[in-house]
């Protein structure tokens, strides 16, 4: 049984004029690293919200079709019930930190679920170590940088021990350096068997780690498959996706200069390797 299953799912927010999601069919298996991308307003955020039942439980609207997360239909289960299956990290770090220090923040989720204090303490210590938050322990959210805040927000989500981590543009308000740190942490978590769904525009940073890219436009999925296949398609440039430079170079060589490098590179290093191979 797949971990996430959307069957012919459509959604329209109350008061909105058009559908936010149109007939989405998507299955995601355990352990996958799925990157969702597409232009603004294409429904990426709504798709993230469906995975922990914020849509339709928190954001009301018109729905058709079903979303089944780990065997639970989101029509019949509350966000709280799904909070230990799917954890969401949002775009704005400041709005995710609701307590006055980092320890309390991490403990907030498990406390809500009524988990034993000793177990909560254990998880807090574990996450502080895993995400390197030791120096921030006693800090007020206001005293931290955006990148640090986002790391704390991620720890706070992971404290619920979710099977799925959904991150909705977690790096969009961060500088490139902090963004890279966050994305490294996410791909590291995926290697620890966490299913990851990441909305991201900086494909040059994530496509090498992703197992799959889902391309969305105007509320529907327009392409879905392994990064190398998807990024080489023309549709990416048509709807304006940040295709990695290396892939663009590959495409241009192939189309305008008739040079085929054999396989599709995603990073500069891969491209350099291919060029070396071809020239030798």
């Amino acid at each position: 049984m797949p971990l996430i299953e959307l069957n012919d799912f459509s959604f329209k927010y109350y008061g909105a004029e058009s559908l936010a999601l149109r007939k989405i069919d998507l299955t995601i298996e355990e352990g996958e690293y799925v990157v969702i991308t597409g232009p603004s307003g294409c429904g990426k955020t709504t798709l993230c919200r469906t995975i922990n039942a914020l849509v339709p439980q928190f954001h009301r609207g018109y729905i058709s079709g079903n979303v089944i997360i780990d065997g639970k239909n989101t029509r019949d289960h509350t966000v709280a019930e799904l909070s230990s299956i799917a954890g969401l990290v949002f775009q704005e770090p400041e709005n995710q930190l609701v307590t006055l220090n980092v320890e309390k923040e991490i403990a907030f989720g498990p406390e809500n679920l009524g988990i034993e204090p000793t177990e909560i303490r254990r998880r807090v210590e574990e996450l502080i170590k895993l995400l390197d938050l030791e120096h921030l322990r006693e800090k007020h959210p206001h005293e931290m940088s955006g990148g640090e805040q986002q790391r704390v927000a991620m720890a706070a989500t992971l404290a619920l021990k979710p099977k799925i981590l959904v991150a909705d543009e977690p790096t969009s308000n961060l500088d490139p350096r902090s963004a890279e740190v966050i994305l490294d942490i996410i791909s590291g978590l995926n290697k620890l068997d966490l299913t990851v769904i990441l909305v991201e525009h900086r494909l040059d940073l994530v496509s090498k780690d992703a197992s799959r890219i889902v391309l969305m436009d105007k509320g529907s999925i327009v392409a879905d498959g392994p990064p190398r296949e998807i990024l080489a398609q023309d549709i990416c440039q048509e709807i304006g996706i940040g295709v990695p430079k290396a892939t663009l170079v590959y495409k241009r060589l192939k189309e305008q200069h008739d040079i085929d490098l054999g396989s599709i590179p995603l990073t500069g290093d891969e491209l350099a390797g291919l060029v070396k191979e071809a020239s030798s």
Binding site: R49, N52, L54, F58, T78, V79, A80, E81, S83, S84, G87, L88, F90, N95, Q96, V98, F108, G109, N112, L113, G114, A153, A156, T157, L160
Partner: peptide, 12 residues
């Protein structure tokens, strides 16, 4: 509220 809800605020 969205973020708190996702972390099970008021669950138990």
């Amino acid at each position: 509220a969205e973020s708190m809800e996702s972390r099970g605020f008021g669950a138990s």
